[in-house]
Design a protein around this nucleic acid. Structure first.
Lengths: 164, 164
DNA sequence: TATTGTTATACTCTATAACTATA
DNA sequence: TATAGTTATAGAGTATAACAATA
């Protein structure tokens, strides 16, 4: 989070937004979108922190779970990162006994990736944390708002991305 | 963004969410909150990119603008970062002629920070980008949803933060 | 002793390019 | 030649600890 409240200082979210049209972010959606997302991530990290499972592993485990036998390059594309950045992560996941790597018999360049039983278990644990976290978010959002709020988030992501 | 769609692979946001209760993030608010925020930041960065102004400077300029004479330690607390991380940023902002540093006469340990005319101008330019960006977000959110959506974001940030 | 700002250092996450082994 | 994965290297962005100047 970039900005914390304090009694001593004025901040961008401060009460002077009426002074000038360009001043104050109190009413700016993009700003509060960031604050809400950061609060959500921090709350999730607090939850997961106790289990000593690195939160960043989640998406890799999830993609491998959904695509057993995927290779590293495909995984990197699916995860939106360069393939070189996965070498370290996959080595750690292998050492932790969560991911099994086998060489493809017919094309020995490929590493075929899948989850071990342990990996499935850890993924399930992370999913449970995510579910608990999302239940908390649902409680805050409220059942009346939930569908509308989710729809708006999806429209924001898709329409802002389509401007590239 | 961690995950991109593709015709070849199944992803966490894929269509298999009905298979198991724990599978699929298609309906998970925290996930879409992240996607929307990342899309918003990327769209803002595309806007600002043309002007060769580092987006990360924005919050520093804004806090200094709102608190002329603030010192580096106070600024670091306001920005939520360690004071040591500001030395480089403030040196660059000084070299770029955006921030003026003067030693406090009565306590020469303090650097008193303020914006130069140039700094005020750059801040205004960034604010204009932010306003244009937010106008785009407003268009997507829609005037019917705007107030509700913003209120929900604020509740999320404050209630999730209060659990610390 | 305590505080302000700087420096040295390191860690995480990411990327690009060059390399190897395979094809 | 082309592809899969690894390594070397670098660049943000962050943190902690030790330090010099000042109080």
């Amino acid at each position: 989070m970039d900005v914390e409240p304090s009694a001593e200082l004025k901040y961008e979210d401060g009460g002077d937004s009426s002074t000038r049209a360009t001043e104050g972010l109190a009413n700016v959606i993009g700003y509060h979108l960031r604050l809400a997302q950061e609060a959500s991530f921090a709350a999730y990290a607090r939850r997961v922190g106790d289990t000593h499972i690195w939160p960043g592993w989640y998406s890799l485990l999830r993609i491998i779970h959904d695509n057993p036998g995927i290779n590293q390059t495909e995984l990197s594309i699916a995860a939106g990162r360069d393939k070189s950045t996965l070498t370290t992560s996959l080595r750690e996941l292998g050492k932790a006994g969560l991911v099994v790597k086998t060489r493809d018999g017919s094309d020995r360049r490929n590493l075929r990736l899948s989850l071990s039983a342990n990996g499935e278990e850890h993924l399930a644990r992370l999913e449970n944390h995510a579910l608990a976290h999302d239940a908390e978010i649902d409680r805050i959002v409220g059942s009346n708002e939930r569908a509308r709020f989710l729809d708006t988030l999806k429209r924001l992501a898709s329409e802002l991305a389509n401007q590239c």
